[in-house]
Amino acid sequence: MRIILAISLSLLVNYQLYSQLDSSEKVRYQALYLEIGGPSTITSLNYEMGLFQYNRLKLNARIGVGFTRLNDFYLNFNPDLTFPVGLNSTFLLSDKKKGTLSFELMGGNTFSTYIRANHNYQPEREFDSHGYISTGPSWIFTKGVYTRLTYCLLLENYKTPFHWGGLSIGYIFK
């Protein structure tokens, strides 16, 4: 329960902070990256776009798709998928010639769908949703290559916590 409150608070703080900003400060920022681990657990391909920027602070929205397995237990194409969505707040720590170092705080949901055996042992699709918060440093090279290392706290079905990690590699389009 405390963890859910923490997520809610984090999102609320982000919302309060950024909602006060003038809409003219919207930032043109788009990123496409592959995340190994992270809120989708195994791997996911993500799109992130900038919403607001204020001095060193930036708020991005993220949506992704990941999979854990492509075929079901009878080997038919029937993928287990995850869809991480969330808000990502970044704070610029340093801006150097070789790139920029930021600290990131993220929170959101992962929607998952997977195949399990029903009572007749036939494949049956299940749908779940989970919460996550994650945090860690990111480094953007001047040529736009984006890297990030995160610690993630996953909340399976919003109640069972898992400590996890994530490594992201991608490209920034401005």
Binding site: T41, D80, R116, A117, Y121, H130, E156, F162, W164
Partner: peptide, 21 residues
């Protein structure tokens, strides 16, 4: 089972397995 995140599989009754394979 909670060994894999987001994948929630159930414990198997042996007779169910014998019936359904």
């Amino acid at each position: 089972y909670n060994s894999t995140q987001y994948l929630s599989y159930k414990i198997t009754r042996v007779s169910d397995l014998m019936e359904n394979v």
